[in-house]
Design a protein around this nucleic acid. Structure first.
Lengths: 210, 210
DNA sequence: AGATCTCTGTAACACTTGTTACTGTGGGCA
DNA sequence: TGCCCACAGTAACAAGTGTTACAGAGATCT
């Protein structure tokens, strides 16, 4: 854990803070597909991502889902942060996109470090900033783009966070993330394939050139 | 200014902090319709709303607009906050919804107070929290609701921030905020009128019961 | 191999939203 | 008063997306 912590956050935090994090935090490891946070959960801490990627989902009253964004190494979930500080329930679901490891920081420490370490304070503010930007980006996407463009963006993001042009998803899974129907996804994927941008196989999409 | 400051923030901040705010901040007054922040602006400070309401808009590359949310008394714009701290350009436009007055806080003070006053720190975090919630709400709205439901929500919000059931807007203005076309708005408004929920006059909508 | 199940492809249709075009109307102004 | 202009109402159509239904293809299990 110590090595990974240094690797992902060493350039951000001073030695003593890394030390404190290592001491107070608990290492968690989850495998792809695991639900890390469920909507309505009370959060006991805030996660610092060491390895892997997490996808953050929103759900409406009818159980319809929508992918908000991905979180990667070096990120924390400001939504979580926000929930911790406000002692409110989580408004989002977090699911491991890949095999993932992260450190859980107890709430109490967060406040303490905010006063004690400037680097931590900056990190927290920076996290809020990137999270707000990410949310703006999400809004742009759903407000200004058509479904075919959203799908392309989705595939690009998938390739990026997985570090692999091969996407192992069914059309139905993609449909959930984009909050549309399987048929629509199949239709648009087929179009992309005909344009030579991707290649389709069962349970498996290969991105060629988007 | 002092009185209004006490009124809006007295229950949040201690005497000394209010004092400091009054000393360092500059009072600004704008009239309905004025643009306060333009996309791409570098921000020199962060606004604390005293009176009135501000609407926050997003714009895409084609110049298409979308209303994100309203800010009211006691709020600050976390987006601004975020920009200030990150020293980045504004990603949003802020337009006075009503006649509005606010205090501009210089960036330097923000950092200082963050360390010095717990109440200020909490306020900043709280602002981020409410802003993230607001953004989530916006995402829910555009992702999960149909245009007729979005329109109803919009009218309700308008009534709330203006404190008046009479809305002085043209259909075109509403269409801009909702990122749709004038014809669509007219169509849906007419439907709402037929359902007895609103009454329509030229340049003027009265909300009866939504 | 055959049975079964999940995933994908496709057609046909419905619904919502956006577009174009035209009409009428209310209000201000010469 | 009459003209003009911005605003609102409406129809007809286009485009995008969602829904239903069904067929076939690929994987898995016995």
């Amino acid at each position: 854990m110590r090595t990974e912590l240094e690797e992902a956050y060493g350039f951000l935090f001073e030695k003593e803070l890394i030390e404190e994090i290592a001491k107070s935090g608990t290492l968690k490891t989850v495998t792809a597909g695991d639900t890390i946070i469920e909507i309505g959960d009370y959060l006991t801490g805030m996660p610092l991502l060491l390895k892997g990627a997490i996808k953050i989902l929103r759900e409406d009253n009818d159980g319809d889902e929508l992918l908000l964004y991905f979180i990667e190494r070096g990120d924390t979930c400001a939504m979580t942060l926000s929930c911790c500080l406000g002692q409110t329930k989580s408004e989002i679901r977090a699911v491991a996109e890949t095999d993932t490891s992260f450190i859980m920081i107890p709430i109490a420490k967060m406040e303490e470090w905010t006063v004690k370490y400037k680097t931590w304070r900056n990190f927290v503010f920076e996290s809020y900033h990137t999270r707000l930007s990410e949310m703006l980006d999400t809004i742009d996407t759903i407000a200004f783009l058509n479904m075919d463009e959203r799908l392309m963006k989705y595939l690009q993001d998938k390739v990026k966070v997985n570090g692999n042009e091969n996407i192992h998803s069914t059309h139905q899974e993609i449909a959930y993330d984009l909050h549309t129907s399987r048929v629509v996804v199949s239709r648009l994927l087929k179009k992309l394939e005909n344009e030579g941008k991707i290649s389709l196989k069962r349970n498996h999409i290969t991105v060629i050139d988007l």
